[in-house]
Design a protein around this nucleic acid. Structure first.
Lengths: 135, 135
DNA sequence: TATAATCCTATCGGATTAATAGGGTTTTGC
DNA sequence: GCAAAACCCTATTAATCCGATAGGATTATA
């Protein structure tokens, strides 16, 4: 299950991408339009800025804006920044790999193989979708 | 991410399916072989029995056994029984649907559409795999 | 009847999540 | 200049979930 953080983050990015001009969008505007707690959204946008997706401008008429063309922003990258691993098990994660305590031999593990199939299919979908696709 | 409950449950089912004869397998045997806490596994197998995948026999020489041929047991069904929803958001779940609080119109939601794609691809994989495939 | 096994309910500590609190810092517009 | 608007940052909280454990009750076999 995706956390609300990730869901809200995606909706916020999509909202920003829908703007005609690439001028800063204040948190309050997104927060009201998308029904997201202002403070919670604040922390999410901060994460997205630190991850390199958004730029920000302080002061009056400030806000957040995209640093790249929406068609360059892959869903895989956004979800990894917000949620962490995409895989259903740490032992099949490409970017957040962790060995299982209980498994002596990963290659012999019945669940491992299945979850690699799931991972590859999920990745295929998320790589084929950019921010411009969900706008 | 799959919970350990689900991971252990799948491994236990695979273990039982690997037995030559369909005679009851005691919890302790699975627990030792698969490195799963005996008590925790106990509660998992109870779930799987109540869900209709396993039968049990009490007393000496008791244990758990499959109620169906492994090739009839779909991964979708097992995971739903152990984990709950397969979808990444409640609003795209087929079996555990829940409306999002923040979304006035699901069909207009950018994230919704994306997660339906992910769900459909995951379901395709999990429907094509039975217990006999992961044995 | 002793033993081996499942059955069942309750509980617990720790981690995570979603949100809130409260202020700080920077920039803009007047 | 200065006040307001907006981002920046840390800490705390309430609630929930997770993995595991406890402790017995029940049942079947040898």
């Amino acid at each position: 299950m995706l956390s609300k953080k990730t869901k809200y983050g995606l909706k916020a990015l999509a909202f920003i991408a829908r703007q005609k001009e690439n001028i800063p969008v204040p948190i309050a505007v997104i927060s009201k339009s998308e029904n997201i707690s202002h403070k919670f959204l604040e922390s999410i946008l901060l994460t997205l800025r630190k991850a390199g997706f958004l730029g920000s401008k302080k002061g009056k008429n400030g806000g957040y804006y995209l640093l790249e063309n929406p068609s360059k922003i892959l869903m895989t990258d956004v979800i990894r920044a917000l949620e962490g691993p995409i895989a259903m098990l740490p032992c099949v994660s490409l970017n957040f790999y962790e060995k299982c305590d209980d498994c002596p031999d990963e290659k012999a593990c019945s669940v491992h193989k299945l979850m690699i199939q799931v991972r590859d299919n999920t990745l295929k979908v998320l790589k084929n979708n950019t921010l411009s696709d969900i706008t």
